[in-house]
Amino acid sequence: MTGARRGQFDVVLVWASDRIARSVRHFLDVLDELNRLNVEFVSFREQIDTAGPLGRALVVIIGAIAELERNLIIERVRAGMRRARLEDRHIGRTPLQLDNEAIRRDRAHGCSLRTIAKTYRVSTATVQRVLKQSISTAQEHVA
């Protein structure tokens, strides 16, 4: 975002309007604030100049279409996830198949978390999670 002067107005030049706001409402609030401060908004990519009412109307229309597109994408993703759940399909990454008992045994023999992680080709966080689960399971059996 750069600034310049054009007559009595200061000018804010941005590469694209989506770089200044994430929703139409926020964008219009920013434009109102800029207008209140006598600052003109110019978008390089969209060739939008908000000096006049036509430029502002164009910004509102483009912003509304962009927000509609974003909401449609979100709705399609949610619908796809609902359908996958109804069809009992797994959503997301497949769970790791680990030998939890061997990990616990290696740790009991004094192996470091990093060594165990390299041996089983997992992260140290995964090794810690397996060990933590074994501790909580043991505490449940005692109680």
Rank of each mutant, 00 (worst) to 15 (best):
D10H: 13
D10T: 09
V11K: 02
V11Q: 05
L13T: 15
L13G: 00
L13N: 10
V14Y: 06
V14C: 13
W15F: 07
A16W: 00
A16Q: 15
S17A: 13
S17C: 12
I20N: 03
A21G: 10
A21W: 02
A21V: 01
S23L: 09
S23T: 15
S23W: 05
R25F: 06
L28R: 04
L28C: 08
D29V: 03
D29R: 12
V30T: 13
L31P: 01
D32C: 08
D32Q: 11
E33L: 12
L34W: 06
N35I: 09
N35G: 08
R36W: 00
R36G: 14
L37T: 03
N38S: 13
N38A: 10
V39C: 14
E40S: 04
E40H: 05
E40K: 08
F41V: 01
R45G: 00
R45A: 13
R45T: 11
E46T: 02
E46F: 01
E46C: 03
E46D: 07
Q47Y: 04
I48H: 04
T50W: 02
A51L: 10
G52Y: 01
P53S: 15
P53D: 14
L54Y: 03
G55S: 08
R56Y: 02
R56Q: 11
A57R: 07
A57Y: 03
L58D: 00
L58A: 06
I61T: 11
I62K: 08
G63Y: 01
I65R: 09
I65D: 05
I65H: 10
A66G: 07
E67Q: 15
E67L: 06
L68E: 11
L68T: 05
E69G: 07
E69Q: 12
R70E: 06
R70Q: 11
N71G: 09
N71W: 05
N71K: 13
L72E: 11
I73C: 04
I73W: 01
I74E: 10
E75C: 00
E75A: 11
R76E: 04
R76V: 06
R78Q: 10
R82A: 13
R83T: 07
R83K: 11
A84M: 07
R85Q: 13
L86G: 08
D88E: 14
D88A: 12
R89A: 10
H90N: 08
H90C: 06
R93C: 08
R93P: 02
T94P: 06
T94I: 08
P95A: 14
P95N: 08
P95G: 06
Q97T: 15
D99Y: 09
N100H: 10
